[in-house]
Design a protein around this nucleic acid. Structure first.
Lengths: 211, 211
DNA sequence: CATGATATCGCATAAAAATGCTATATGCTA
DNA sequence: TAGCATATAGCATTTTTATGCGATATCATG
């Protein structure tokens, strides 16, 4: 037998919580060591547990939300991998969870065997992600056009990426192997298309998905 | 019978190409309508195909690379969903592919039945992604802690917010009702604490949650 | 084949940002 | 209380950015 994986659950839907508990405990190498219905309960009890490898938690919890609890949990348990299991599929919640340290993001319609698979993926250095969540992320990297805003060319998008990386004109030129004057020219076109007149605005728009 | 899904392949590994072709054609509702070994061949032949729903392509192709071919393909076939199937798992290639319009990203060790599943996920509005690839993305959103990064003061955080809003020093001074020299001074402190030396880097860090 | 979008490069200049140095006042804390 | 971080402000200089103007070449589209 391999080593046991210790799992904790925070889930206020009692039915789902018990189902998960039973299913995971039924697996040979999984062991549910803590199962609570709120973040508050978790903070009260987690210190009594020797080791938590995986925490599966909801977002829509009573009291402290799952997202707000994330930083505090990661602070106390930096080596625990956290999987969000939730009905929320809006980009804001997804990105917030990831920024605050979640390693995976599953929708509640995920079948039990896929949840098991997700835990195994974590140990294989992967990040389990429901396909619909992954789509949000893909859209972040390749946002849809804003109405009335002109499409940037491939080269212009590359320039934007470089600006977002914090590069100066000189370094952009080096990365793309073009002259600094050409960089200037592209940036001019970008400013015109986006109706801005500073790098700062381009970077902000990029992060806000407005490009 | 449901409607047929038309699939195209660009894969220079002949063995894999033929295996995929056979496997996908064997499925009831899949139909491999084009199967070539290079981007050049694809551009020559794709116009003869009435409809391509899904394109599965490699990155490491002879001649034009898969990544370089992406924008041109999306331009001609904006409604074709593209899945990258490749051995490359470095962040740069992953992000480049996504920025250039790929809808999914699978590693070559993906089993055939998972590839089939991925195609179905695309039609369900999802983005198939190997777990190891998803991990790269998660790390993008939650970068590792920068060692010895100092906490910003309240005033400094206000300045950061103003910079993120795309304001110039002058406008920051106006908003906070302080002199432009004081703004400079605060920004100096911010740069020192964050180990950067441009507005662009501050804004990026802010969006990435590194502040 | 003309037109427009893209991609490249150069020169010049004004505006903004980055940095070096100095200085005063306040509040916290070791 | 001496030291430290914060918040304020000024001046000078260098570097980077923003913008105006001009130019050539390619490619796709009408």
């Amino acid at each position: 037998m391999g080593k046991m994986t210790n799992i904790a659950l925070i889930e206020d839907d009692i039915e789902l919580k018990e189902l998960l508990e039973k299913y995971l405990n039924f697996q040979d190498d999984f062991n549910v060591v803590l199962s609570v219905v709120s973040a508050e309960d978790f903070f009260e009890e987690f210190k009594q547990i020797e080791k938590i490898d995986i925490l599966i938690m909801d977002i829509g919890l009573p009291g402290i939300s799952g997202i707000d609890a994330l930083p505090k949990i990661k602070q106390h348990l930096p080596h625990t991998e956290i999987i969000m299991l939730t009905v929320h599929d809006d980009s804001e919640k997804v990105f917030q969870s990831l920024r605050r340290g979640a390693s995976g993001y599953l929708l509640k319609n995920t079948p039990l065997d896929k949840i098991k698979e997700s835990i195994e993926q974590i140990f294989a250095g992967g990040s389990p992600m429901s396909p619909n969540i992954a789509r949000k992320i893909v859209e972040f990297f390749n946002p849809k056009q804003i109405e009335g805003q002109k499409e940037l060319s491939t080269r212009e998008k590359e320039i934007v990426v470089a600006l977002v990386d914090g590069l100066s004109y000189k370094l952009v030129a080096d990365r793309l192997d073009i002259s600094i004057d050409t960089v200037r020219q592209h940036i001019r076109s970008i400013y015109r298309k986006l109706n801005v007149n500073s790098k700062a605005e381009v970077i902000s728009k990029s992060f806000k998905g407005e490009i």
